[in-house]
Simulated assay, not measured.
Amino acid sequence: MPDLVKHRVAILGTVGVPANYGGFETLAENLVGYHEETGNSLELTVYCSSKGADSQPARYRSAALEYVGFDANGVQSIPYDMVGLFDAVRKGHDRLLLLGVSGALILPLLKLFSRARVITNVDGIEWKREKWKGLAKHYLRFAEFVAVKASDEVIADNQAIADYLKEAYGCEAHVIPYGGDHAVEADPDPLAVANLPDGYALGLCRIEPENNIAMILEAFDGLGMPLVFVGNWDKSRYGRELKHKYAGHPTITIHDPVYDPRGLRAIRDGASLYLHGHSAGGTNPALVEMMHFGIPIAAHGCAFNRHTTEGRALYFTSAAELRALLSQMSAGEAKAIGETMCEIASRRYTWASIGRAYFELLEA
């Protein structure tokens, strides 16, 4: 009886593991965790950026690590992904899990000399994000086209993205979102909330226009409800101007970014309401993480957020609309929404179910 083929999987397109950056990194880390905990027989390799890395260990948990000498974000993400893909094929990986489309232009070339199965998570509809202009926007749109056409399987993290891919390219994407239950696993650090008000509403995200930070701050200006907004305010002119405008506000606390899991857990535990202003992307990791905390959520009313929350959260598209929603919300309604968010999260957004879906696709 012939030996079963032991497939070799490469995960590409992230900064690397252990995760210390964003959603794709958290996904990669949890896929490694699922691989280790289930004793999955696939051989797993994660490609990492050597830029800024303090060390370059050969392994992380059950995964081998390979390093590429470019940044994984910005314009360098293009050669970073391309070099990683070429190296993965050269080293005999027959399953390529590509997270994002930056380096997808090399996929047709790889197909000429490799039979590796390519599975691409297209992320959000990147070219539609406000931060991309001119040539970058056109490149990302073309890269999306190539990724969809040259991949063997395509993953969308939200049904709204799957609907878009079907309409734009006739592509039947697999809908696999993100897990969020890791957010409630860390022990809270009480020092992180020592100087915060009681019963605050919480905003927590990267400070970018498409996340509608200004809209949320405007809604809370004069509302009387305390708001703590955590983010990387000093990263952009947009953030710095908002930080300056609301510095010293009597009910709005402009908080620097928090990356420590224990600090994040404490800040989330102390919130009575979560504000989610993202209007682009797909299933946003911050949203599914907060759904596990069982508090009411007010989200921008775009299709992505409505799909993620199954239409059961509060939705707004303007500062006036948000202010009215919060002014009218009763304690009973808040409790019911929070319980519903937690039920949806437990049913749809756990890493055990996400890991199972990814590895079924990789093993197929």
Rank of each mutant, 00 (worst) to 15 (best):
Q159A: 12
V17T: 11
D189C: 08
F86D: 11
G134Y: 11
E25D: 15
C171P: 06
V146R: 09
A331H: 09
D71T: 10
M1G: 09
L140Q: 09
R129V: 02
L202G: 01
G74C: 10
R268S: 06
V68L: 04
A136L: 10
R59I: 08
A266P: 00
A357F: 09
T251L: 07
H244P: 00
E37Y: 04
T45K: 06
A104G: 07
D189K: 08
I176L: 05
N30L: 05
L12Y: 04
N211W: 02
E360N: 15
H138Q: 15
A162W: 08
F304R: 04
T14F: 03
G332C: 02
D221G: 03
R268C: 02
V68Y: 01
A280H: 14
N211L: 03
F145M: 12
D234M: 13
D123M: 13
W127A: 05
I207E: 05
Y169F: 15
A186Q: 05
F304E: 14
S102F: 03
A247N: 09
D234K: 14
Y21F: 12
Q56A: 07
E343N: 11
R348H: 11
S102Q: 11
P250M: 11
L85W: 02
G52P: 00
L96C: 06
N73S: 11
G231I: 06
G263W: 03
R323S: 10
P108R: 13
K243N: 07
S318M: 06
R90H: 08
P285K: 06
R356S: 14
D181N: 12
I161L: 12
P2I: 12
D152K: 09
A320Y: 04
G33T: 05
E172Q: 15
I344D: 00
A192C: 06
P250T: 09
V230K: 08
I78L: 12
D3Y: 13
V75E: 14
L97W: 08
R262V: 04
P296E: 00
A143E: 04
G224F: 10
L27R: 08
A201C: 03
Y21Q: 14
H7V: 03
L361A: 08
N20G: 15
G332P: 01
H278M: 13
A58P: 06
N211M: 03
M225V: 11
L322C: 00
V146I: 14
G16H: 11
V17N: 12
S353W: 02
L273F: 14
K91V: 02
F70N: 05
D94R: 12
H93K: 00
C302Q: 00
H292P: 07
I267E: 00
R59C: 10
V175R: 07
D157H: 14
L97V: 14
I252P: 01
G239L: 10
G52V: 02
R306F: 06
A194T: 10
L273G: 00
C342M: 14
G84R: 06
G69V: 01
A324Q: 14
V83E: 05
R95P: 03
P250F: 10
L112T: 13
V118Q: 05
N232P: 10
G74V: 11
G301E: 04
F24C: 03
R141G: 08
G33E: 12
L325Y: 05
A28P: 07
G224N: 09
V230C: 09
R8Q: 13
A280Q: 15
H307G: 00
T253P: 01
